[in-house]
Amino acid sequence: MKGRRTRAAAFIVLAALLFLVLLAGVLAGSVFIPVADILRILTFSPLSEGTPAMWPAIVLRLRLPRVLAALLVGSALSLSGATMQGLFKNPLADPFIIGVSSGASVGAAAAMLLGLAWTKAGAFAIPLAAFAGGLCSLFLVYSLSASGGRRSTLSLLLAGTAVSTFLGAVVALLTYFSGEQLQQVVFWMMGGFSGRNWLHLFSMLPWLGLGGGIVFWHARDLDALAQGEEQAYYLGVEVERVKGRLLWASALLAAAAVSVSGLIGFVGLVVPHAMRIIGGGAHRWLLPASALAGGVFVVASDLLARVVLAPAELPVGLVTALVGGPFFLYLLKKRRVA
């Protein structure tokens, strides 16, 4: 039974897994640094004689921010997915269902085509453009789907699909004309964390805090909304207002995550789904569990992406889809049997 004990045990296992993958993530790389030294560097303890001067920089400036960025992106995408699923009363919804990903892609591709990537501010121009693009697409969907003060989930989904498809075509067009930047555009759309630094991390933090806070604040309302809008209404939820807030909050989470990592699919779909199977659908369990498990999943995927073809790197979005896809099918199959 999905009692308190199962949930508590799941949290403990997830926390342990998170610690392990974070450590492994900092450990992996072309320069081998022993675990003991890594722990010493991370706790700012005095280093032993003869420790190479580069090691603290490698750990603190390169590996740690990268691993933490993967953690935050995974958490944000999973939270966003869990929210969208509750909101649309549909376990197949994902963070990108209302066009955030295609909007972000247009923003990122446009910034690359303008050559901003090669300027000094380039490292931030692309995330900023992606973030703005993602939110613009939601704004578009949000205004297109309104009628008479209400936005039905169906009209939101339809507007989301239409806007997604249209912006997808714009991305294809931009890619077609991208010339020298082609590889860069394509890579961005497969997601990854190489070269991400502390500034990237800090730039997404406030949005994740805001979006995550709003989502957690509405955990009970999400339980009610997952029963359907009419049911939620009878349980005292101001449906339209809450729906609007949750839509913006989950878009904020997804856009901020994607702006740093590029497109990483499947996380927002698979992780909440797996957590529902383990501990049920109540959002006061589902939201924190998804945030934790999403972090584990993306940090582990990034680790895999770096290790499999080392010294070459796979795009993380490929790994999450290659691992997540079959896993998702396995869950579906297993569930039908159970």
Binding site: K89, P91, W217, R220, A224, L235, G280, G281
Partner: peptide, 24 residues
């Protein structure tokens, strides 16, 4: 009223307390 999500009977019935609880 059906739902595709897993809630226990107790969790479903507890939703009836939602109008009496403030957030957090």
């Amino acid at each position: 009223a059906h739902s595709d999500f897993d809630f226990t009977v107790e969790e479903m019935v507890s939703l009836g307390r939602l109008p009496f609880l403030s957030r957090w």
